[in-house]
Design a protein around this nucleic acid. Structure first.
Length: 586
RNA sequence: GCCCUCGUAGCUCAACGGAUAGAGCACCGGACUUCUAAUCCGACGGUUGCAGGUUCGAUUCCUGCCGAGGGCGCCA
């Protein structure tokens, strides 16, 4: 926002350094001055002093940095945007003219259609996220990939990338055959109720239980798998029909969560291509075919001539010739680059599969597929239950997504009834939905990707403090002021009064929004955005308490109305990027 | 045995190698006749697991140790 002024400054500073025979750094690094009632930007001269100290041994770096800062300050011509310049402890601090800075920030936000969005980068990124298994339940443990992936997509799009959203669902495997077996034998002809995904999950649990109680039935499962493998019409038709029930159920859930995909890949879809690719690897001498006694393997460390084990051995095909996950992943990676002109292919998959992906991509790289180097694993940790209990359908230790959503809405509705009884029933329901979903999503985003989320009902549904409802509430308050205002300004004049500290803090946080977006996009970390947005909401709430808007003098009121509208826009935009709705009332 | 994460306030978590390590929760004390109190203000709370190293400067980078979790040839 102040790039021009900053560049101009750098030039002037470098000239001063040159005139005094002080080494010039390649570039000056700028950071905001730690806020203490006044904002500004700052740079330091420790690196320059350290450079000098290389030739002059007796030099004390901190002291010399302080001298240089002072020297630069003395020689710097007066600055329009920085009326106060300070040299302190090796830092050069330039403080903004509060009025010019604040009106610049507010006007930039007001004028922008999408404040903080980046210029088009001209790069296409595919993000694969949410890999649910058909014929199984969709529980809270599956939620993290879905929500994290969705929001990373939103951040990347806002930051200026073209994004292709890919879903990869597991539609074949032992679990599916078990389900089909149970269905044929005990539920033939039944169709799913409205809550299809839960029903699919229940039938799967039932199948597992029956097989555990009577292990002799395993032979029936193997026989059924063989019939599927032979592509027997009856089985394939049943498989396709029932698979669709799951896929439709997933789509309903995605819709509730406001998550969409551009491309759905099924692992059965790439099975055949995977086997072809394995043949190719065998012919190229990359894979060793040890069938029928052993599997088809790729000795990665040997191929790379590594002494220490790193990539180890990847099994790419079972000894009986059936496909593994790796078989399919090899083909899928390739298919993605064939279908889209990708600059990067990002996989949002839990951290346990880290080695697996390194192996798959390294294998493809050895096979001569250069794009394999553009595959990235965005790993995340699991969602556990309190007491480090892993969520697993098999163990019955799960919280179903449907249950969580219903509970969240119910609790949110209770709060709405209490806080805002005058709303119509429809409005209350609508608010409860937005708040409930936000409360579910936020904890998945407000955390380092590589850290375990412990799912706790109380914490998940605590609507106070550092959580989505807090940010939504700030948006509601802004909206509420604007509704009562005589009009919403589209331009803010320089404020002709002394700004309240809370206004300044708020403006500071608004101004950082564009930088935050780029940081979050670069590191694939929604965490940066949740934190920054929380700070915007927090400073807005403080401002709201401290500085009256509607009852203020007209000049004060007009500027503050602009600030309120700017805040509302940033809060709404930020929430939208987080996939969280911003209700007008709550 | 090898590899990957992680270790920060009582709890849950932050902090581009920078200035006095910050929030929320919990606890304690204040603030609704005032734009919605799902809010705000204040107090309390720290040897950043331990020991070295690099650096003008380390929670951050490197090495070792301790502790937690995870991954390592036919599961996904």
């Amino acid at each position: 926002m102040f790039k021009v002024e900053q560049l101009h400054l750098e030039e002037q500073i470098q000239n001063i350094l040159k005139e005094n025979n002080i080494p010039i750094p390649e570039e000056l690094e700028w950071a905001p001055v730690p806020f203490s009632g006044e904002w500004g930007i700052s740079t330091s001269f420790f690196k320059v002093a350290a450079l000098e100290a290389k030739s002059v041994k007796s030099l004390k770096v901190p002291q010399r940095a302080e001298e240089i800062a002072l020297l630069v300050k003395e020689n710097l011509p007066p600055q329009e945007y920085f009326p106060r310049v300070e040299a302190l402890g090796g830092y050069l601090n330039l403080f903004f003219d509060s009025r010019l800075f604040s009106s610049r920030v507010v006007n930039t936000v007001l004028a922008a259609e999408h404040f903080g969005s980046g210029e088009s980068k001209g790069e296409t990124l595919m993000v694969e996220f949410s890999q649910p298994n058909t014929h199984k339940a969709f529980h809270v443990g599956h939620l993290r990939s879905a929500i994290l992936g969705d929001v990373v997509c939103r951040i990347l799009e806002y930051a200026g990338y073209d994004v292709v959203r890919a879903n990869y669902y597991g539609d074949i495997g032992l679990h599916v055959i078990k389900w089909l077996w149970n269905y044929q034998k005990y539920h033939d002809g039944e169709t799913p109720p409205p809550d299809a995904t839960r029903w699919m999950g229940d039938l799967y649990a039932e199948a597992t239980r029956r097989l555990e109680e009577n292990p002799d039935l395993d032979s029936e499962i193997r026989a059924l798998y063989a019939r599927w493998d032979q592509q027997e019409t009856e089985i394939v038709d049943l498989w396709k029909k029932t698979r669709q029930w799951s896929v439709d159920g997933f789509k309903d859930l995605y819709q509730i969560l406001d998550i969409y995909f551009d491309r759905y890949y099924a692992n059965s879809e790439v099975e055949f291509q995977g086997k072809e690719l394995v043949d190719e690897l065998i012919q190229k001498g990359i894979a060793e075919d040890l069938r029928p006694d052993e599997a088809v393997i790729v000795r990665l460390d040997d191929l790379l001539g590594l002494k220490k084990e790193k990539y180890r051995v990847l099994v790419v095909l079972r000894s009986d010739g059936t496909a593994l996950y790796a078989t399919e992943d090899l083909a899928l990676a390739k298919l993605k680059f064939e279908e889209y002109p990708l600059d990067r292919s990002i996989y949002v998959v839990d951290v346990r599969q880290s080695l697996h992906f390194q192996q798959v991509w390294k294998t493809l790289e050895i096979a001569g597929y250069d794009w394999a180097g553009n595959c990235e694993h965005l790993s995340y940790e699991l969602v556990n239950l309190p007491g480090d209990v892993v969520m697993a359908s098999r163990e019955g230790t799960v919280v179903l997504l449907e249950d969580l959503i219903r509970e969240a809405k119910t609790r949110a509705l209770e709060v709405v009834e209490e806080k805002n009884p005058d709303l119509t029933q429809d409005e209350k329901e609508e608010v409860a939905r937005a708040v409930g979903l936000g409360a579910i999503k936020f904890p998945m985003l407000d955390r380092e990707n590589t850290r375990i989320v412990t799912f706790d009902w109380e914490l998940a549904l605590d609507f106070n403090g550092q959580a989505a409802p807090y940010i939504q509430y700030a948006h509601v308050r802004a909206n509420s002021i604007l509704k009562k205002a005589p009009g919403i300004p589209s331009v803010a004049n320089d404020p002709d009064y002394e700004l309240d500290p809370t206004e300044m803090t708020l403006i500071e946080h608004l101004s950082q929004f564009p930088v935050v977006i780029q940081n979050a996009a670069r590191e694939y970390k929604p965490l940066h955005l949740t934190h920054a947005l929380y700070e915007v909401a927090r400073s807005f709430n403080a401002f709201y308490r401290q500085a009256p808007v509607l009852t203020a003098d007209p000049e004060v009121r007009d500027f503050r109305l602009g600030l309120v509208e700017a805040s509302r826009k940033v809060l709404a935009a930020g929430l939208n990027i987080l996939g969280i709705e911003a209700p007008a009332v709550m």
